[in-house]
Structures are given as C-alpha cells and as structure tokens.
Computed example of a mutant assay.
Amino acid sequence: MDPSGLDAVGALSHETLGDRVTGELRMLLIAGRLGPGEKLSLRRVAEALGVSMMPVREAVSRLAADGALEVLPGRAVRVPVLTLAQFRELTRLRLLVEGFAAEEAARVADEAGIEVLAGHEAAFQRAARAALPDAAAAVAANRELHFALYRSAGMPSLVEMIERLWLKAGPILNLDMRHEPRRLDGGSAVVAHAALLDALRRRDAAAARAALVADISAAAAHIESTGRLAP
C-alpha cells in the first residue's frame, strides 16, 4: 500500500467514522493508489486515519460487499485481481454508462465547465510530455478530467454509478498508466482527450461519446495485452 497516499489524508474527526473511512478507501481505489492483488493492513489504515479498528472493519465490509475489496481466509484483505472476463464486462459497462455521460455533458456543459476540463487535460499533457514523465500526476489529471466530464452532465446518480465501476476498474487502469509512463506521451489518451474537448465545444454529443469510447477501448485493449489479468 502506498504510505504517502494514506498519510496525505490526515486524521479524521469522530463523526460518522465508518462513512468517512469508506470514502477515503474508495478514493484510494478509484485513484489507483491501491493496486490489484495488494494486501491492505487494517492497522495501518487505522493509524494513518487516526481511528480505531472498528470503523476500518466496517468500511472494509462495505467495500467487500461492493466487490471492491476481497476478504481472504484468515481475515486478510486485498484488492481483487480481475479476471479477463470480469475486466471485459466492466469495460462494456463503462462504454455504455460513461459514453452516455459524455453525450449528456456535450448537451448541457457550460463554457466554464469545459474550461475546467481543458485545465485537467493541460495538466495531463504536462505530466505526460515531461522529460521524465510524471505518471502519478498524469493518473490524477486523467481521473479529474473524466470525473469533471461526468459531473458536468448534471446527473449525480449517474456519477455514483460510474464511481462504482471505477472502484473495480480503477486499480488496474491506473496501475497500467503508472507502470508504463512513456506510453503517455503522444498516446491514445492524448488524442482522445483532444477529440473530446473539441466535441464538447461544438456541442456534438455523438462525437463526444465516440471520443470517450475510443479512450476507454484503447486503454482496455492495452491492458489485455499486458497479461496482468487473471485467466
């Protein structure tokens, strides 16, 4: 587990601790700070967040029920390793749900919202095109761009659905980006993001969906080729 990721969140107050610990762990999973197969030390989590073991166990139970964490024999906890079939199912669902969000965003996003997306894309390009690519910054900028897009559709329940998909897909998606930072510069994500922003500015819903689908599909195809998925 990435110690800096937990240390950065700081101690929590004693109000609704189960919910808040769940939220922190959700964000670590979505952000790819916890990788597939990585074991989670509940004591380490409790110490980093300044809470007792009880809310941590509660949070783990919730995330295990969602399939985002896996409780092994002996009560060990780890991030699940997706099978190829599971990954392909998640990809199909992401194409449908996130593609729809991109269409809706193209119809309703205002200029200010589009410029926020452009800012995240600029940050992604800076990280990707640096002499020594900053994979962590690129991962963060990519996530911020995607979720700013989905929020701009103005459908909070849709964003919740997408977050649930990223809970399972996030670790493998971001592990791929972190392990191969050189693939970022001039890669498919840069091209797809540019096409997405152009479609949003033109209010072209079909083109926005196509750009988002191209982004997800290219990343998924590469991940399948790396052999990091279970049979």
Rank of each mutant, 00 (worst) to 15 (best):
A102I: 00
K39H: 15
M53F: 12
R203D: 08
E111I: 00
A206Y: 06
T226A: 08
M27W: 08
R209C: 08
L165D: 09
R183C: 00
F100A: 13
R164N: 11
R33H: 11
E47R: 02
T91H: 12
L145G: 08
A189H: 04
A46I: 04
D2S: 02
E70C: 01
R33Y: 03
S61K: 05
T226D: 09
A199R: 06
R201A: 09
R143Q: 06
A31Y: 07
A138R: 07
V159N: 14
G10V: 01
R78I: 00
S188M: 03
L212M: 15
R26M: 13
M27F: 05
A8D: 15
S4N: 08
G154T: 06
L93T: 14
A220V: 03
R75N: 14
P171W: 02
P3L: 01
R33E: 13
L200Q: 10
R88Q: 11
A214Q: 15
M54T: 13
Y150I: 04
T226H: 12
L117R: 07
A122C: 07
R107K: 13
G35M: 02
L229Q: 14
R62Q: 11
R92E: 14
G119V: 02
S13R: 06
D134H: 09
I216Q: 10
A64D: 14
A64L: 06
A11D: 10
L196H: 15
T22Q: 14
A8I: 00
D7R: 10
A141E: 09
A169Y: 11
L90H: 07
L82P: 11
A230H: 12
L167D: 09
M54H: 13
S4M: 03
A195E: 15
V60T: 05
L34E: 12
L149G: 13
L69F: 11
A101G: 13
R182V: 01
L96I: 03
L149D: 10
S13D: 15
F87P: 07
Q86L: 01
V79S: 11
D176S: 05
M27V: 00
L12M: 04
D110E: 07
K39D: 15
A135Y: 09
A208R: 07
P171R: 03
V51Y: 14
W166Q: 11
A211Q: 12
E47Y: 01
S52Q: 07
P55M: 06
L28D: 15
A11I: 00
D66Y: 07
R203C: 07
P181V: 00
E144A: 08
G170W: 09
E47F: 03
G154M: 04
H14R: 11
I30T: 09
A123L: 03
R20N: 13
H146I: 00
A135G: 06
Y150N: 05
L25C: 07
L95W: 04
F124W: 11
E144L: 01
L69D: 13
A207R: 14
I30Q: 10
R183M: 04
P3A: 00
L145M: 08
R202H: 12
Q125Y: 04
I30W: 08
L165Y: 06
E103V: 00
R126M: 02
A11C: 01
